[in-house]
């Protein structure tokens, strides 16, 4: 995505308007960016409440930098992902461990007739647990690539690494996930569906 993308320019203009005192702009920016910030924080931390705190803090930093934001300097989404990743790293280090609080995943939904839903929930829980076992940088790279669906050049910008380094992190992360999900397959009901 180029920096002259209309969506990116619209974001920058909205942030400028906010900095100049316009009303209602912050809500629009928040509606657009909070979901992705929250999702990344959740994939990194595995805890909804902590992820919400991180999302709020990341957005707060956006409000604070608004008067100094230079149009064309960066995408707001990229900047927010970077801030979110740093905030998550700080929290993980404070925790003293890299395993998300809910690494074991949520129990499957016992509602009868919800087999497909249960299957999806089980898969999501299994992936969450497997992600939690990855080193932090691999988890971030894989989350950005396959859960947030960002391109490798943008991930490189977010992580401040080369594209080659990002590709390597993603490849190693996916190998780690496959290994973890194979272990987990024994406890899942999808043994006919190997990873």
């Amino acid at each position: 995505m180029a920096l002259d993308d209309p969506e990116i320019r619209a974001d920058a203009r909205a942030l400028q308007a906010y900095a100049e005192g316009a009303k209602g702009v912050a809500e629009a920016l928040s509606a657009r960016h909070t979901p992705r910030v929250l999702a990344l924080a959740y994939h990194m931390l595995g805890d909804r409440v902590e992820a919400e705190d991180v999302a709020q803090e990341a957005m707060m930093r956006l409000w604070k930098i608004a008067p100094d934001w230079e149009d064309g300097r960066a995408r707001i989404s990229t900047w927010l992902y970077r801030v979110t990743a740093n905030l998550c790293t700080d929290r993980l280090r404070k925790r003293g461990r890299q395993v998300p609080l809910e690494a074991a995943g949520e129990p499957p939904d016992p509602t009868p007739g919800a087999e497909a839903q249960m299957a999806a929930k089980d898969r999501a829980a299994a992936l969450k647990a497997a992600l939690a076992r990855l080193p932090e940088s691999q988890r971030l790279a894989v989350s950005l690539r396959h859960l947030e669906e960002r391109g490798n050049p943008e991930i490189a910008e977010i992580m401040q690494l080369s594209v080659e380094a990002v590709e390597s992190l993603i490849a190693r992360g996916k190998r780690g996930l496959r290994a973890a999900l194979e272990d987990r397959a024994e406890s899942l009901s999808y043994r006919d569906d190997p990873i």
Binding site: Y18, A26, E27, S30, A31, T34, P35, L38, A39, Y42, H43, R48, A51, E52, A55, Q56, M59, M60, W63, A119, A120, K121, R123, A124, A125, L127, K128, L131, L147, E149
Partner: peptide, 22 residues
């Protein structure tokens, strides 16, 4: 499956963020 299971922001989170912004 994990993408679909990602949490969506709750109204109280949007309210907190809007208060911060104001």
């Amino acid at each position: 499956a994990a993408r679909d299971a990602a949490p969506q922001p709750r109204p109280d989170l949007f309210s907190r963020i809007a208060e911060d912004a104001a």
